[in-house]
Design a protein around this nucleic acid. Structure first.
Lengths: 232, 232
DNA sequence: CGGTAAAGAATTTTCGAAAAAAAATCAATA
DNA sequence: TATTGATTTTTTTTCGAAAATTCTTTACCG
């Protein structure tokens, strides 16, 4: 696979406590279970995640570098604050990066890329259809949604571009989840996904990228319209 | 200032040992004093940087997230390895990101941007002129060089774009310093800087971006021509 | 001889407590 | 009453040692 191996989580080494709690913290920040701007006290974190201070500090340090957590001097860590200016910037940059990657993928993606994309779309659609009837795991939908967007651009052949796109997708996703709380994006989004994929498979770069931009713009409008709660 | 505040290093909080050693490790990795791919043993690091394990692990964790260090399972940390594929990818993405940011800066940069840019260029030129006669601090040149490239794009108004550009600049810089060892890029580079700045001030976006691309391509050629030493 | 298993050494990772810093409380003074 | 300054409390940060894991060496057996 053509991916940046920073933390080669898979092979060989057993999962460390720091890596484990990093993943859990990340999920809780993206889901806004940990509210933007709030302080992260070690006493609470130790309790909540059942590990000591050392792995917690490691995990938080990693999250600082990816922009989901901030830290200052000897004053501890906080969840990254949220603002309209921030999400507006994130949306703009995400459109550029993910758009570029998608264009490249459409240009040079091979059979494996197509197959993986179709598979990712299918897994997402399955869950969305199921969600019409029964209640479905929110976190699972998030994972499959992220995976679909990733699959779209994987064919671009640039590990760094994919890495940056992931970074911005996560940032964007946190804001989306601030506003839409508990309503798995419904029909319209699902259809957009379908259309973007089809354009990509048809090797229609302009079409795919245009739709991706609209997709992001629409989500941004929704986010901005609900307003961003910024507790002091 | 319009900048991402992940680790608000300035105000308030006193500099922590972890933050301090993060900076020093970063410098040593970028300068290739710590060779690409090499293992980072805590015994050695403790000795070299005069701190305990805790701040070291924190600093290394941050560096993992910024792609200068890798880690796997319970097998410790290593300096990120180097490869031709990697630097080729980095160069491509850097051209896109920094190019876009420069274009935006040229489009909307204000007086403060222009003034800061001219100042940064001057500081760099001063050192380069001085370097013709006496020996000059390498690290100081690196800092001013980085600062010049930063000044070029600061006017773009997008904290995230600037952040990503910094990330890629650092990655690229490490490779440059692998090859050019001890020869502060001479006349030609200095002239290119001058020309790019002039085009930017003249609000000639296409010209500035084109020259920036050439600037990066030339550096890439040099890097690839010297070959990348990849010890097993 | 080659390969496999067990013992030993080296290294990483984690915990618990001490040290250092920041925040909060309270008293004294103008 | 507001403000400053000292004291206590809380919280973060760092160190040193214990636990867990990986790597190396050695011995054994097919």
């Amino acid at each position: 696979m053509n991916t940046l191996a920073l933390q080669s989580g898979e092979d060989g080494g057993a999962r460390t406590a720091a890596a484990e709690v990093y993943g859990r913290l990340r999920v809780d920040i993206l889901s806004c279970k940990l509210t933007p701007g709030s302080r992260l006290r070690f006493e609470d974190l130790k309790e909540a995640y059942g590990v000591g201070i050392s792995p917690l500090r490691e995990a938080l340090s990693r999250l600082v570098a990816s922009g989901l957590v901030t830290t200052e001097g000897q004053r501890g860590f906080r969840v990254a604050p949220a603002s309209e200016a921030d999400i507006t910037d994130i949306a703009m940059v995400r459109k550029e990066i993910e758009g570029l990657a998608l264009r490249m993928a459409v240009g040079k993606g091979d059979d494996a890329w197509e197959a993986n994309l179709v598979a990712a779309r299918h897994k997402l659609a399955l869950l969305e259809r199921r969600n019409a009837k029964e209640e479905v795991n929110e976190e699972e939908w998030e994972a499959r949604h992220r995976n679909f967007h990733l699959a779209l651009i994987q064919g671009c052949g640039s590990p760094w571009l994919v890495h940056l796109a992931e970074l911005l997708f996560d940032q964007f996703d946190r804001y989306r989840r601030m506003s839409v709380k508990h309503s798995l994006s419904g029909e319209p989004t699902s259809l957009e996904h379908q259309r973007i994929m089809q354009a990509a498979l048809d090797r229609n770069a302009d079409g795919a990228v245009g739709m991706l931009h609209d997709h992001i713009d629409q989500a941004l409008s929704l986010i901005l319209s609900t307003g961003i709660s910024t507790p002091a």
